[in-house]
């Protein structure tokens, strides 16, 4: 799929959550990357991005980010992350370290003394979905689709750190009216529906600090996606998955209601549209089952009527 002469090659940044809690996402991302000619390289040594430390100590968070940036740089690779929080944390740190040589030197002094590493500020950090959007593009994805997802009403959830803060992500999409995920969804033949509170945060950032408050946030999202008659919520972050899918039964019990709203990672949909099997995109691991997606995966073609 990649244009000849422009190989798309990244160090794959898994982060903490995806490789333990969202194996379906990781599996679908790796499989679709391979189909589309994106080379995702496993680099030994990558660890936490630093996000949990931002609230505790700025410098410690920056050091953890810089360590990962240094590891990818040593391989001559840009970083491609699956988790939006990791993407935002690493991209923000990268932005600061690249634009402020004095800060970079201060960070490098600690990195060198402590773990013998340096970061020279030569790489980029992008979310996997941004790579799909910018370097493959909705049009080429549309041409590669072998199984049209027409008939599916999908509610795109961009989340926060995929887009914001905007300067860390080179302003590649508008945080007030983002279009990238919608365009990637419609490229598969599905409908990307409007619903209230599209830009609302999943609440994952405060799940540890105040569970009741945190769960009230995904509750609103689930309510609103249901009100818009979505077939599924489409996400691109493993922590959003924890809030919308893993916590869905608890939210239902807390608020004495029933959603049963399927939550899928965009690469899973992409993989099905590219002709991969349900198994190959990790569909059996999705907790809230989608009859429509299972039918699409099994039938090898769109059922005539839902």
């Amino acid at each position: 799929m990649a244009e000849t002469g422009t190989p798309i090659r990244y160090a794959l940044y898994l982060g903490c959550t995806a490789p333990v809690r969202a194996l379906n996402y990781e599996r679908a991302a790796r499989a679709t990357a391979e189909r589309l000619g994106i080379d995702l390289v496993d680099v030994e040594g990558l660890a936490c991005c630093g996000f949990p430390l931002k609230a505790v100590q700025h410098d410690a968070a920056l050091l953890l980010s810089a360590r990962n940036l240094a590891l990818a740089e040593a391989q001559g690779l840009d970083l491609c992350a699956l988790c939006s929080s990791c993407t935002g944390t690493l991209a923000e740190a990268n932005h600061a370290l690249r634009s402020d040589p004095a800060l970079r030197e201060r960070v490098n002094q600690v990195l060198e003394q402590t773990i013998g590493r340096r970061y020279e500020g030569t790489i980029q950090v992008r979310h996997f979905v941004r790579v799909l959007y910018e370097q493959i593009g909705p049009e080429r994805i549309r041409q590669a689709v072998t199984k049209d997802l027409g008939g599916l009403r999908l509610a795109a959830h961009y989340g926060c750190h995929y887009l914001k803060p905007v300067e860390a992500h080179d302003g590649f999409d508008d945080p007030e009216n983002p279009r990238s995920l919608d365009r990637l969804i419609t490229a598969l033949g599905a409908e990307s529906i409007w619903y209230e509170g599209r830009d609302q945060c999943c609440g994952g950032g405060i799940l540890g600090a105040d569970e009741q408050t945190a769960l009230a946030m995904p509750r609103l999202k689930l309510e609103r996606a249901m009100a818009a008659e979505a077939d599924a919520l489409v996400i691109i972050c493993p922590f959003c998955d924890i809030m919308y899918e893993l916590q869905q039964r608890r939210i239902e019990r807390l608020y004495e209601t029933r959603y049963n709203l399927p939550v899928v990672f965009y690469p899973q949909l992409l993989g099905l549209a590219l002709g991969l099997s349900g198994e190959e995109v990790g569909l059996p691991l999705n907790r809230v089952k989608s009859k429509k997606l299972a039918e699409i995966a099994a039938a090898g073609q769109i059922p005539a009527a839902f």
């Binding site: 898994l14 490789p19 194996l23 990781e26 599996r27 790796r30 496993d42 030994e44 040594g45 990558l46 660890a47 936490c48 100590q57 410098d59 410690a60 050091l63 953890l64 360590r67 600690v110 003394q113 402590t114 773990i115 990790g282 691991l285």
Partner: peptide
């Protein structure tokens, strides 16, 4: 799931936590 194994690499992180 056909995914490669991952490791913890806790020593470097622990060292950075000591440094800070």
């Amino acid at each position: 799931q056909g995914l490669p194994p991952i490791a913890e690499h806790e020593q470097e992180i622990a060292a950075l936590l000591v440094a800070t």
